[in-house]
């Protein structure tokens, strides 16, 4: 994802701002990283350039 996507995305749960941590980038492109909600602390992964902003109960890493 382009870093300027940060201007419009937010936490799906409480709609608050996200903080970006970059693990791997290619120019403006964030390839791997984490988005953390500045309010509730929920973390969302960015993998292969695609941010996964599914609420936690729809993600793979949380047991149903």
């Amino acid at each position: 994802m382009k870093e300027d996507l940060m201007d419009i995305i937010c936490c799906p749960l409480d709609k608050q701002e996200l903080e970006l941590t970059v693990d791997e980038r290619d120019g403006d492109d964030v390839i791997d990283g984490t988005l953390t909600c500045t309010e509730c602390g929920e973390r969302y992964p960015i993998e292969e350039g695609i941010p996964n902003l599914l609420p936690p109960d729809m993600r793979d890493d949380i047991p149903a």
């Binding site: 419009i8 995305i9 937010c10 709609k15 695609i50």
Partner: peptide
């Protein structure tokens, strides 16, 4: 190219700002 952004998300809890 850069004109498209892909986001994995849920229609019932959109991860986007108001009025955007």
């Amino acid at each position: 190219g850069d004109r498209v952004a892909l986001v994995q998300g849920d229609a019932a809890s959109l991860p986007l700002d108001d009025d955007s």
